[in-house]
């Protein structure tokens, strides 16, 4: 007796969570949570850009998120401003700029709440194609850069001395984050995308003995959180995106409970 739109919502959420989990591991390992947040906040500007140019919003999101990532890296390199200050400035500037630009486009009727917090129950078949097509690209890209990225995460200088092309690998990684933001926006909205990246990954830490185990555990945790969140949102009539985040946080809290005489996972 489950209706189609609920199936679509679950498929969409699960697909995004399965991609965001492994990618989010690197966000957690590299302490890039606010970096991801800043990229996500710029997505609204990307939506506006896409609409102005008459493109699918996803392309606008990818372009603007990538541009903001490059701006961050470029400005960070000058070292004139502390990294967290820079992130704070850019993150809120991007969000405000997006809101202002959209408000100026008076001919558009946009569901702003949907963009900010997601509207998973409004997911259509076309969205599912985007999510699973884009998701497959992200996972393939991540598998491709997995080893060099891991080396860079351990120590950038060491990796570079050992022949890892640091800049190229990091550019690919940023592109993957931008793509993930584009496909995740519909599910949890731009304000909560980072939570889908970092909370399942953080929850998976205790279960994992290797980086790969953590990636798989993060994907599974993410799908579980999405399922629980969606069920909760239907049961209690709460917004679905935030409900998924709450479910993920509950799983994270559960992962912190000490286990007697058994520290770690399988």
């Amino acid at each position: 007796m489950i209706e189609d739109f609920i199936w679509r919502a679950w498929l969409a959420g699960a697909g995004v969570a399965a991609v965001a989990g492994p990618l989010g591991c690197f966000v957690v390992w590299r302490r890039m949570a606010y970096f991801g947040d800043t990229m996500a906040h710029s997505a609204l500007l990307g939506v506006a850009l896409g609409l102005v140019l008459g493109l699918e919003p996803a392309w606008g999101i990818i372009a603007v998120a990538l541009a903001s990532a490059l701006l961050l890296v470029g400005l960070g390199r000058t070292g004139r401003i502390a990294d967290d200050t820079l992130l704070g400035i850019l993150s809120h500037a991007a969000l405000s700029l997006g809101l202002v630009v959209i408000s100026l486009m008076t001919w558009l009727r946009l569901d702003l709440m949907g963009y900010l917090f997601g509207d998973v129950l409004a997911v259509g078949i076309a969205d599912l194609y985007w999510i699973y097509g884009g998701g497959a690209v992200v996972l393939a890209g991540l598998a491709w850069i997995w080893r060099p990225m891991l080396a860079l995460t351990i120590d950038a200088d060491l990796a570079q001395a050992e022949g890892v092309p640091g800049l190229r690998v990091q550019l690919v990684f940023m592109l993957l984050i931008a793509l993930t933001i584009a496909i995740a926006m519909k599910i949890v909205g731009i304000l909560l995308i980072t939570s889908l990246l970092i909370i399942p990954a953080a929850a998976a830490r205790r279960l994992a003995r290797s980086p790969e185990q953590m990636a798989v555990a993060a994907a599974v945790t993410g799908v579980l959180a999405c399922t629980l969140g969606l069920a909760g949102s239907l049961q209690f009539d709460t917004p679905s995106g935030p409900s998924m985040v709450i479910a993920a946080v509950m799983l994270f809290a559960l992962s912190l409970v000490p286990t007697p005489r058994y520290d770690g996972g399988p």
Partner: peptide, 22 residues
């Protein structure tokens, strides 16, 4: 290199550390 600090959130054993680029 001088002073490597590996994030505690990264599950990594010695063998994996040694073979990550080789």
């Amino acid at each position: 290199p001088q002073r490597i600090e590996i994030n505690r959130v990264l599950p990594l054993n010695v063998e994996r550390l040694m073979t990550v680029t080789f």
